[in-house]
Design a protein around this nucleic acid. Sequence first.
RNA 1: GGACCCGUGGUGUAGCGGCCUAACAUGCCAGCCUGUCACGCUGGAGACCGCCGGUUCGAAUCCGGUCGGGUCCGCCA
Length: 645
Amino acid sequence: MGAHAHRPGTIDASHTRTRSLFTVSADRRPLATPYRTHTCGDLRLADDGITAKLSGWVHRRRDYGKLIFIDLRDRHGITQVVIDAGDAPEAHEIATRVRSEFVIAVEGIVTERGEGMDNAKLATGAVEVQVRSIRILNEAKTPPFYINDPDATIDETLRLRYRYLDIRREAMQARLMLRSRLVQAIREVHHDNGFIEIETPNLIKSTPEGARDFIVPSRLQPGTVYALPQSPQQLKQLLMVAGIDRYFQIARCFRDEDLRGDRQPEFTQLDLEMSFVDEDTVRTFIEMMVIQVTKATVPDRPIRQIPFPVFEYDDAIERYGSDKPDLRFAMELFDLAPALRTADGTPDSGFRVFDETLASGGRVKGITAPGMGGATRREIDELTETAKRFGARGLVNLSVQPGGELHGPIAKFLSASTQATVRDQAGASDGDLILIVADKAETTNDVLGRLRVELGGRLGLADPNELAYCWVHHFQMYQRDAEHTRWDATHNPFSGVVPEDEVLLATTAGDLDVRDPGDPAGRAKAMQYDVALNGWELGGGSVRIWDPVLLARSFGLQGYSKEQMHERFGAILEAFEYGAPPHGGIALGVDRWAALLSYQTNIREVMAFPKTQSGSDLMLEAPSAPDAEQYQELGLKFVGLPPKG
RNA sequence: GGACCCGUGGUGUAGCGGCCUAACAUGCCAGCCUGUCACGCUGGAGACCGCCGGUUCGAAUCCGGUCGGGUCCGCCA
């Protein structure tokens, strides 16, 4: 375990690379210093009788007049120390002045607590330290919130303002330690598999990632700027050209976009890239790595399915309405079109909205909420509100009655036989609620996918302990840009096309100014894969286009002129002329991963010093106005933003 | 860029037009207590209700604005 295992003098046969990652060292005193012989989590019954020195923060003090108990805390645990006025009058006098969160050092005899006096809630609860001497290393103001109450709800503004106090709390420490284990496991698995960890610069040139860049003005070259990397994408591909056939990095990335609970302006990616691989090779490694890292980090949490399920992008959308399905519960979408058409295929449900939607090429699909047949008006309204917020015109609800009859506002339009088929398609039975959306395909799937997530939450369908990883791949390569007549890469502009679709690109390599919506390029599938975990996108990657001819063709389709290509991708295009190996990789969101493994949905909870939604650091009070001198050196002047309008 | 929610002693909440010279819990301070472990008991201090303006005889309570925080849409992979 890093520093512990490799510390001189602690070498022992079990300290090999293959031993379990996280066993506690047999040597219990690696953290001993002049201030302590043990940590506050170390002492056990076996230590009865020894002299120990402990240092830490006063977690709690219980004063009996002539007898004072102090729960002494450090990040390793809590140990009760006792100061008895009869045994140690000087120490007792000092202890009366001690308050919460004072930093103190004590020395005394480790003593078995004895019958009925032990505390099973503490790992060290079988013993206590009978204090001979005590030192106040530092006093402390009364903290602005409870550090010693794990259940206290604290306003996040306060937590962020006093983050160094927040991090003293057990829950934060546990999450940061989990994150540290996660990153350690990531490094071990990669090193064990021949990967080289290489750092790439944070002052680079803008890369076309789609998000807004953070800009850093150059002093040495006034009037020019660096961009902070949105990801090391281009640099890692250049490393592949450089012959680093297996690269990884725990990389800090920066994106100047609006924030969310799962998005911070700077965040951490596990970035990796491999040479001489096809999609299968890369995904096989990543899956193995993810499984090993998960097991090393949270050994008690079950992974729902190994190997991970693999979905075609189109299938994921069709079945779950999402490209990052939460597979901890089923509740798949169903298609009502077959139930609503006559034998010759004419839409004839009796309900005009359904028929017109189908006739115009839209979809009528639904989802079944088990046991929600008795939903209140209010619940239905809330679900309808959700549906509308995501673009649906309405939400049809039908509850299944004991006889199998459907009840709901539009039930009267549906014949008995149509009702039976609908019920059948929905797989619904007595007491269930059927929710139906009729709209164009994209809206229908999206709305139902979001309803699925919401219903899963309301009904508590997901096992919170379970980790359901899955793959979604074969995204469509390009999407037609609404305004311009060009194709946007749906993910990474370097993503390769699946070999059988290469021809689709070739057939359109003619006049780039005239783009036909029916262009075969729109059908091309990318060698692009995402990993999802419990309904979150953990990360995505692809096998890249490594053939310069194909790359130029793909960029052309995306509407880049020769000049733009050179301006934005010059280095990589040139590098590819010197022999690029086939390569592919992935980037995984470390913050999201750590959050999910910590049962959190907010990545601020696994970051030591995160920013607020408006990008402020409440502790450091960043951002702040630069000095006049800084402006001057850079030749800059703030002229204000143009008026809104 | 937009929608919604929150802002009351140190902390978490209650109060939502006059009974509020603001309540409860906890924390804090003082005193008592030799076996507690969210110790206990007694006493005490502590907020003018984010800020500005308005409505009203009267505002923590209603309205507008503003600042800060959060959730979400857009944006972002």
